[in-house]
């Protein structure tokens, strides 16, 4: 029974076999100020883990660390048991870690299809000469890449496919957010980091995004979700990690986290906690109705 724990001391953390991603005592300081401190974290294949916390709690810094954008001050990062601490983002992507950004960062002047193809880049083998001369192996590879890109775009129902040859900048806001997810998926990641995927979306768009995220999650794809909308994160996650001032203050199932004193004090406030509990009940009811 995993009761929402007090902060784990790093001394106890050991390499967990079978974890897809694990961080041990992960710390990042900016000029003496610790943005992320001593985070022990793990996620197993196929799991969805929510990361919540007030603004400035270190959630995005945590993402930047495990995607290699920042180099950690201390601590280790393991992907499938391999130490990847301090590796470059493109290496980490090859290891299977892909992400979206909190503020949309598509290649705005490229088509929707090209955005996804850039994501697929890492899977292509052909070299520069073959690329320029369009040798048969390259052509074959490119046809395959395009087929695969459309496969990814189709996961998003009819939101992206009809716009395949339009510039990314011309998409509706919510669709641009979805395209970011598609671009990340194109690299066939094992772990997908979603940084507030539904921010700025209206309720209907949010519902739709949740449905799609639930659809893309599979036994081969684990998801870490940063999200401010508590109903979203509580509804989707198998497990929730709560950060505050760069430290992990709680971890457990959505229900455990919500009843955790520290979390309520630090983050939710009693009123919000009650609301979240109501959401949980609603989810349970929905699940029962579904079965």
């Amino acid at each position: 029974m995993a009761v929402a724990r007090e902060r784990l001391s790093t001394a106890q953390a050991t390499v967990q076999p079978g974890a897809l991603l694990q961080t041990i005592g992960l710390t990042k300081s900016f000029g003496g100020l610790a943005a992320v401190q001593n985070i022990d974290f793990h996620i197993s294949p196929g799991e969805i883990v929510g990361v919540i916390g007030p603004n400035g709690a270190g959630k995005s810094t945590f993402f930047n660390l495990i995607t290699g954008l920042y180099k950690p001050t201390r601590g280790r990062i393991l992907v499938a048991g391999q130490d990847v601490t301090g590796k470059r983002p493109d290496i980490l992507l090859r290891a299977g870690v892909a992400r979206t950004f909190q503020n949309i960062r598509l290649f705005q002047n490229m088509t929707v299809l090209d955005n996804v193809l850039v994501g697929y880049h890492t899977r292509l083998k052909s070299r520069l000469v073959g690329d320029i001369l369009k040798l048969p192996p390259t052509r074959r590879e490119e046809r395959e890449a395009e087929r695969r890109a459309f496969e990814v775009l189709r996961l998003f129902d009819d939101r992206l496919v009809p716009h395949s040859y339009e510039l990314a900048r011309n998409l509706a806001y919510a669709d641009r957010r979805l395209l970011e997810i598609a671009r990340a998926l194109a690299s066939s990641p094992k772990l997908l980091l979603l940084d507030e995927p539904t921010v700025g979306m209206n309720p209907a768009e949010t519902e739709n995004a949740i449905r799609i995220i639930a659809k893309i999650r599979s036994a081969d794809l684990a998801i870490i979700l940063i999200e401010h909308k508590l109903n979203v994160v509580m509804g989707m996650s198998n497990r929730v990690v709560v950060l505050d001032y760069g430290e992990k203050i709680a971890e457990g199932t959505p229900r455990e986290v919500q009843t955790n004193e520290k979390v309520i004090e630090a983050y939710l406030g009693r009123k919000a906690a009650a609301q979240a509990a109501a959401m949980l009940d609603r989810r349970d009811a929905l699940e029962e109705a579904g079965q």
Partner: peptide
């Protein structure tokens, strides 16, 4: 028309995002 060209355009538009997409900037 080439993959390298696509990588160049991606890098020109957003270096960090390009890096995140596995491009060796």
């Amino acid at each position: 028309n080439t993959r390298m060209g696509k990588a160049m355009r991606a890098t020109a538009q957003d270096q960090e995002a390009a890096r995140m997409m596995g491009i060796d900037v």
